[in-house]
Design a protein around this nucleic acid. Structure first.
Lengths: 341, 341
DNA sequence: CTCGCTTGTGGAAGCGCTTCCATCATGGTA
DNA sequence: TACCATGATGGAAGCGCTTCCACAAGCGAG
């Protein structure tokens, strides 16, 4: 029998369904013999009571909040996750927090369909990178509130993102203010398949800062590749082998900055004495290794996102708008005044 | 009206429930006027269809796997989380993955009760530290399969833990083999309120290694305190201020090792030239900063735990036993031959 | 012996939805 | 004019459980 029900158990044990239910719940007021018969039947049939039916009949409503994020990738998601959990814990409604891993971006659409189809969640936090208009409509249609934690925002209340252009500007500006002139940009390729504009925006900020300081642009100093520490390591090697290598590098993420620093140190040069490196994000790691970076308040982002979503679920008519604090330059130990050659 | 149902909507719109349901689902074969009336009613009443009822009637079964973990604390949980997700993705049953944060250990029992009460999950991965016999019984009673990822194991199949004693031995052994004699142990306080024996076990391994090498034990070199980078930082300062400071430090976790290294560097000494430091865990961070450590295969642990749990849920009569690979010494850049003083 | 209480038990109703079948217009066709 | 697809709709049945009410049996007290 595929899925035995409580009725099957009752029949097999020769008792009524009420009795079985009673045993399943608090085993009060049931004679030991009956109990044993029923437990036997349960074991034989491999009965497992249906969560859903139980919830329907008891009227217990535990609501689900889903978070969609790529999981294998950069550690930045963890920071946001922390923020989300924090906000969730402060409200003590009993919301379940369901994690959906979309490490394979191709499966994302399918996943989303399933989520909607099964009406699995009451709200969704989307940290994933490529969120299409079609998907947006799908959720709207299904009446599932959602908040976007992304890098592209249309200015909706339900979207949280940093000002990447400004961040790129800030980082570059910092290096310039230290006297650097040969400044490289190390970032993700763009345009990419998913239309993620993060790298491009930060790059534009970089350009703009250079321009404001009348530094002429040198395309040799722009090094793009897939995201990741290893790739950044290789790209840095390329930069170092230039006839006139940069004296400072702006890596578009902290992880890439780590790969970058590794490559520099391995080539026998020192950070920051010989080359300054600045990252972006300010993940936990960066504090530990003393990386100069631009803080984009990732945890705070997750926190606010969750709060907004809660509002949308509980009081849809009145959603408090919430703003991420502005990007912040965090100067630690990997940048320094340019050494007078 | 508290929770309007589909019947309320139907009545208000002056149509049958079937029609409302049809609109809710695929809006096929419904006249535009009717549709509008119904949508109006839905809006006015603030109707939201019940997830649970829907699931019951459609027969869709999505099962839930819960992971209980302290969330604000050490990054090691992330590693395990990754492993769990990986295992989950390989099986492509549609399991939901629910995260329960028990950062406040006091709430844990209450949480567990709620989970059982609501029959919220089909299986549980417990990464939390203080798991009592009472709780074990509660889950057994409720028939909820669970796997423990902890530091104390009774040898059950449903428990995964490293050999902490051996790990402590390995780490200390490594330092000894480099010629160090003044070796400090920096770890969590024990005994602690939650009966977590991790620190104690690693400490015993440390003692045993010292003993095997006929190094006399010096209680000044044992520094215990709460978990965390900052505390480790302070403890290290204490060690450094000893009349005869250690030449090597075994920190019982990578995070503590980080605090330790920071303190050493800030005091003007170098790692590893002046003092060697070894950690424990091998979290991702450690690779980035080149920390010598003992790898306890955290990700692999999460991965195996999930696989075992899956077995327990799908084929309870046949659970494949799975073993964590043995602890591994990972030598990177923070330990070195003792300088001949 | 009868009454009333307790204990153990059976089973119908109901949770809120989907789905299928029956019903009823409607308009085109023979 | 009679007939039949066709499209729109109403509503009962059923998903698997809990819970409440009814009832039987046993037992001590009056």
């Amino acid at each position: 029998m595929a899925n035995p029900t409580i009725y099957d158990v009752a029949k097999m044990a020769g008792v009524g369904v009420g009795t079985v239910s009673r045993i399943l719940n608090n085993s009060t007021r049931v004679s030991p013999e009956t109990q044993e018969k029923v437990l036997d039947a349960i074991r034989v049939l491999g009965f497992r009571r249906s969560k859903v039916a139980r919830q329907l009949s008891t009227g217990i409503q535990h609501r689900n909040i889903g978070a969609i994020m790529p999981f294998i990738t950069p550690p930045s998601f963890v920071e946001r996750l922390r923020g989300m959990q924090k906000a969730l814990n402060e409200q003590d409604n009993d919301f379940n927090f369901i994690l959906y891993d979309v490490s394979e971006p191709d499966r994302q659409h399918e996943q989303l369909l399933t989520i909607v189809e099964q009406s699995a969640v009451d709200g969704l936090l989307i940290t994933t990178l490529n969120f299409t208009d079609e998907e947006r409509d799908l959720l709207k249609q299904a009446g599932i509130p959602f908040v976007l934690l992304s890098d592209v925002c249309t200015g909706d209340t339900n979207c949280i993102s940093p000002d990447n252009f400004h961040g790129g500007y800030l980082a570059t500006q910092h290096l310039l203010s230290l006297g650097h002139q040969r400044i490289a940009y190390l970032g993700d390729e763009f345009p990419n398949n998913y239309g993620i504009p993060t790298s491009e925006l930060r790059y534009k900020g970089y350009l703009s800062a250079l321009d404001d300081h009348d530094i002429s642009f040198n395309s040799d100093y722009v090094c793009l590749g897939q995201h990741g520490e290893e790739i950044a390591y290789q790209l840095t090697q390329q930069l170092l082998s230039l006839p006139e290598p940069p004296t400072a590098i702006f890596a578009m993420s902290d992880i890439q900055a780590v790969g970058c620093i590794l490559a520099i140190r391995e080539s026998g040069l020192r950070v920051p004495e010989d080359i300054s490196v600045i990252g972006f994000d300010d993940v936990q790691l960066s504090r530990y290794i003393g990386l100069t970076t631009v803080r984009q308040h990732l945890e705070q982002g997750g926190y606010l996102g969750m709060q907004i979503l809660m509002d949308m679920i509980m009081t849809p008519e009145q959603v408090t708008p919430r703003q991420l604090p502005p990007l912040e330059l965090i100067v630690r130990g990997t940048t320094r005044q340019r050494s007078s050659v």
